[in-house]
Each structure stands twice: as C-alpha cells, then as structure tokens.
Design a protein around this nucleic acid. Sequence first.
DNA 1: TCTTGACCCTGTAGTTGCTACAGGGTGTGC
DNA 2: GCACACCCTGTAGCAACTACAGGGTCAAGA
Lengths: 159, 159
Amino acid sequence: MRIGELAKQVDCDVETVRYYEREGLLAEPERDQSGYRSYGVSHLETLQFVRHGRSLGMKLVEIRQLLNFRHHPDGDCSGVDALLDVQIKRVEEQIAAMGTLKEQLIALRGECEQRQTNRGCGIMRSLNQAIQVRQCPCHREDKGTRAVTSPVKAHPPPG
Amino acid sequence: MRIGELAKQVDCDVETVRYYEREGLLAEPERDQSGYRSYGVSHLETLQFVRHGRSLGMKLVEIRQLLNFRHHPDGDCSGVDALLDVQIKRVEEQIAAMGTLKEQLIALRGECEQRQTNRGCGIMRSLNQAIQVRQCPCHREDKGTRAVTSPVKAHPPPG
DNA sequence: TCTTGACCCTGTAGTTGCTACAGGGTGTGC
DNA sequence: GCACACCCTGTAGCAACTACAGGGTCAAGA
C-alpha cells in the first residue's frame, strides 16, 4: 500500500510516517516505478506498535528499545519490565504534580470576587503579592520543598 | 544588579533571563560601561512574575498576556479570569488522561508473570496482540471513544 | 488530448521553552 | 601578570512532530 493508505490505517499523518522512517523506527519500504513508497503488512504492524507505545506516553527512544526487544524474542525480558516501570513512575509523578497545580490554580481563581478592573482583580493582586512577599502557595516553603517545586525545571508544564 | 545576581535571586538560569529578554517578556535593561546588563527592582519583579506563571504551568504567550493586564491596571479583568479558566481546564484534562494512562500501564505491567524471554513475556505478547487484533484497552473501542484517544495528538505525552 | 485534483516526492524550517556551546571580552584577587 | 569567575553575541540542539515550498505522478472526466 502507499503512504497515504498506511497513515489512514493507523490514523496518523503522512508526515509522521516519513518522520519515523527518518528516525529509523520504520524500515525503509520498497519503491514502485514512480518512486512512491510501497508498504507491506510488517510495516503496518510496526507502525501500529509505535503509535501504541506513543499512546501509552512512551518516548521514541523507549519505543526503539521495545522494537529491539521485539526483534530479539529470545533475549531476557527484564528490560521490557524496567521500561514500563520507568513509565509508570513518570506518570505517577506527573499526576501528583498536576494535582498540586490544580489546587493552586483554583485557589487563585477564587481570588477574583467580582469582575472589575485589573488593578482590583484579586487574581492579579495575588500574582503580584507572590512577587513581593513570596506568600503564595508556590513560594511559601523553601526551595527544596516547594509545592510544584522548581517545576519549571523538574516537570516543565506539558503542552 | 548584573544578570548572574538576578538569575540567582529567582533561581533560574542566566541563559533563561536572556531568552526572556529576546522574547520580549523582560524589558531590555541598561548597560554599564562594559556592556554588561544592569537590572533594577522592576526587572526582578517582572522576572518573578514570569517564573511564577511558569510554575503554574502557564505558557509564555499566556504570561505575556498577564503582563499586559498588569501594565493596564484599569482595564477589564475578565481576561485574567478567562486565562486561568483555560489553565484549570487544561490541567484537569491532563489529570484525567494521565489516570487512564496509569491504569493501562499497570495492567500491561501485570502481564509479565515471570521473567523469561522477550518472546514469552506477557507484556510483549500484549503489545503485539494490540497490533494484531486491537484488543488492548487502548484500541478496544472505536476511534471516537478510545481511552487515551488519538492522544498522541490530543495530549502528546509530556516530555 | 487536455485538465483538474488528489496524491506522492525531497528538503527545509517552524513549533516550545529553554539549554549548551563557541569564541571572545571584562573584572577582581593574589 | 595570571587565574578564574563572570559577562557578551550568536548559533545550534533537544522532542516529536507539523507545515510549507517546489516539484512529480496518476486517474478520472470533458
């Protein structure tokens, strides 16, 4: 099948497929006489594997490792376990950080008692106060134990 | 104060300060006779405001808007509200997606009954099965209602 | 036969929020 | 005079795509 068909089957972009090929995640397919890529079932399977990994939040480097395991079915599977453990831990940390973040945002949102001017808005007052005296939840504690700690580094907000 | 001192005070990198200047988030400071940047209190405050916004998961474009509101204290504050609402909604969506993700990962992790070869590993079997028959939790339902739906697009796993 | 439109190709640049150099200048203490 | 910490500009890299530009191919319809 051609690239458009393949992409449609796994519900992703044609450009993404070419990107995976460039990155070595997808084997280079044959070409037809016009130079168009011609894919077989194994390509489809690999692509599905990759997209499945991505949907589980895995990075491409990690998926590359999984593909490696897949190509060496007689190797020790402990690497597969370890990879998933890393992933689970990462997700748990993110959930915790997000929970704190949400609380802070909701607290901040509550500061706007009624719509008025920016000057009077409790949210802006809060944000500005945080600057002056570091009294907001994010800055209250000392560096090491801040709520969503130095999060800009530790877990840069996704998106 | 010089850039190193400023960066230290807000606990961020010197390069980051220069980056914010380039991006127009931080006003260009005066220079001393050697061409070194020379910052005052207002720069410190703005920088703290920016970092605080980042720690709350806001994007730089959003922080830019907040800075705008800050510079127009007599404007209508409803924009401030709206910005926070967007942020809260985003965080809530992420928390929900992460929760689903975690369940899926833990289910997958449970597939590895005992350490053996990659071929025998339940995790790899599961991942491969997902390819063949789309029976894993992520692919079981139809596109529109998939668990962590086309999530690679919708909420690309945070890096 | 010509044309239209959908598809394909390569190559490069943009996105976000930094981070990390390279290659140089400045300031301070000994 | 020297070492060393700090500063400067400019550019490139990261992840995982996405979005062109500028061109080729193919099949259907007039």
